[in-house]
């Protein structure tokens, strides 16, 4: 070939590898089936379940969820890559999400992003060697009036200056939310009937079952 061409035909999933989706994860995904007209429609909740359980959705997990939902793995890849929320590689304990949209950009967002990259020594959507931090970029963090913004996990830092970045990242409490989580947060529910602590369902599934 005259140019450098990426070979996409090389398999990334080993056919004989042990499954990464545990029975618990599968069971939880299957519990969503009755709520949707097709198995394909369960893809988004399934991806949330997997990312909550594994931290990220790798190639093997994509292939397995595709088999479970009876869709082509390319459809899973398509959906995952659309949403920046989903991680295809292991994610650090703390994810620094920097806004790259116009307000933050005008107020120096690009310099902040560069400062974060320099400080952690990694690029966008990468994780530090010690697994502590990952960097993500988002289109908007809904803090345009206080740009540049960045998130550390779910904690918003506003009016960040590039010079503040080292101190901000050195602060152990930089991801503290400060506020209690809302009751509306759909946290996992442990099945009382089981003693192994396996996640049985989510609160809204329980709610739906109760109302029936």
């Amino acid at each position: 070939m005259a140019w450098k061409t990426i070979d996409r035909n090389e398999p990334v999933v080993d056919a004989g590898a042990t499954p990464v989706l545990t029975e618990a994860i599968r069971g939880k995904i299957e519990s969503f089936f009755p709520r949707y007209p097709t198995k394909r429609a369960v893809l988004l909740p399934a991806l949330h379940v997997i990312q909550d359980a594994l931290g990220f959705i790798g190639w093997q997990a994509m292939k397995e969820v595709a088999d479970l939902l009876e869709i082509h793995p390319s459809a899973v890849f398509d959906t995952i890559s659309f949403y920046t929320h989903f991680w295809t590689k292991p994610r650090g304990e703390k994810v620094v999400t920097v806004c790259r949209s116009i307000s933050c950009e005008l107020l120096g967002g690009r310099e902040v992003l560069e400062a974060v990259k320099d400080h952690l020594g990694i690029g966008e959507h990468e994780t530090t060697g010690d697994g502590k931090y990952s960097i993500a970029v988002e289109e908007c963090l809904a803090g345009c009036d206080h740009g540049p913004c960045l998130l550390v996990n779910e904690r918003m830092h506003k009016c960040v200056k590039a010079a503040d970045v080292p101190a901000l990242l050195a602060d152990a409490g930089n991801a503290d939310h400060g506020l209690p989580r809302s009751d509306l947060f759909d946290g996992p529910v442990v099945d009382d009937d089981r003693d192994d602590g396996v996640i049985a369902s989510t609160s809204d599934v329980v709610e739906m079952q109760d109302s029936n």
């Binding site: 090389e10 292939k63 082509h72």
Partner: peptide, 23 residues
């Protein structure tokens, strides 16, 4: 009806792709 092709990423970064290893 074989569905090998998909769109990855979004907006200006979108491109056509396959699931690696399923040509």
């Amino acid at each position: 009806g074989t569905e090998e092709l998909c769109i990855v990423n979004r907006g200006g970064r979108a491109e056509i792709d396959i699931f690696p290893g399923i040509p």
